[in-house]
Deep mutational scan, measured.
Amino acid sequence: SDEEKKVRDQAKRLGVNTEQLLKWARRQGDEDLVRIVERLLRS
């Protein structure tokens, strides 16, 4: 999905993997991002 591509691009920009991005999203309190990243991790 578009959202998932955006998440992957953001992880690349930050230089982190998906698990690290999830931690980062939780720290930001970004519920939408957390949900998308969790979906990516499960897929």
Rank of each mutant, 00 (worst) to 15 (best):
S1L: 09
S1G: 07
S1D: 11
S1V: 09
D2R: 10
D2V: 10
D2P: 11
E3I: 14
E3D: 12
E3H: 11
E4R: 10
E4G: 07
E4P: 08
E4V: 09
K5P: 04
K5H: 05
K5N: 06
K5L: 07
K5E: 07
K6D: 07
V7G: 06
V7L: 09
V7K: 06
R8V: 08
R8E: 07
R8Y: 13
R8Q: 06
R8A: 10
D9Y: 09
D9Q: 09
D9V: 08
D9K: 08
Q10S: 05
Q10R: 10
A11L: 14
A11W: 14
A11Q: 09
A11M: 14
K12T: 06
K12Q: 06
K12F: 08
K12H: 06
K12W: 08
K12M: 09
K12V: 06
K12E: 09
K12G: 03
R13W: 10
R13E: 03
R13A: 07
R13T: 04
R13Q: 04
L14I: 04
L14G: 02
L14K: 04
L14H: 04
G15R: 12
G15A: 05
G15T: 04
G15C: 15
V16M: 15
V16R: 06
V16W: 15
V16L: 15
N17G: 05
N17E: 03
N17T: 14
N17A: 09
T18I: 15
T18S: 07
T18N: 05
E19K: 12
E19Y: 14
E19H: 12
Q20M: 08
Q20F: 10
Q20V: 07
Q20P: 01
L21T: 00
L21H: 00
L21A: 00
L21F: 05
L21G: 00
L22D: 01
L22E: 01
L22W: 05
L22R: 02
L22I: 03
K23T: 05
K23G: 03
K23I: 10
W24Y: 03
W24E: 02
W24I: 04
W24P: 01
W24N: 01
W24M: 03
W24R: 02
A25S: 01
A25K: 01
A25V: 07
A25C: 14
A25T: 01
A25G: 00
R26G: 02
R26L: 09
R26Q: 10
R26V: 06
R27W: 13
R27P: 01
R27L: 14
R27M: 14
Q28G: 01
Q28P: 01
Q28S: 10
Q28H: 13
G29S: 04
G29C: 15
G29W: 13
G29V: 13
G29F: 14
G29A: 06
D30R: 12
D30I: 15
D30T: 08
D30K: 09
E31D: 10
E31V: 11
E31A: 10
E31W: 15
E31H: 10
E31C: 15
D32K: 11
D32L: 14
D32N: 13
D32V: 12
L33E: 00
L33Q: 00
L33C: 06
L33R: 00
L33P: 00
L33D: 00
V34L: 07
V34Q: 02
V34G: 01
V34D: 01
V34I: 11
V34N: 01
R35F: 05
R35K: 09
R35M: 04
R35A: 07
R35L: 04
I36Y: 08
I36H: 03
I36S: 02
I36Q: 04
V37I: 14
V37P: 00
V37A: 02
V37K: 00
E38I: 13
E38D: 02
E38Y: 05
E38H: 03
E38M: 11
R39Q: 10
R39I: 06
R39G: 03
R39M: 08
L40Y: 12
L40W: 12
L40M: 10
L40H: 02
L40T: 01
L40N: 00
L40G: 00
L41A: 02
L41V: 03
L41F: 03
L41S: 01
L41D: 00
L41M: 05
L41Q: 01
L41E: 00
L41Y: 02
R42E: 04
R42N: 04
R42D: 05
R42H: 04
R42K: 11
R42M: 10
R42L: 08
S43A: 11
S43N: 11
S43G: 08
S43K: 12
S43T: 11
S43V: 12
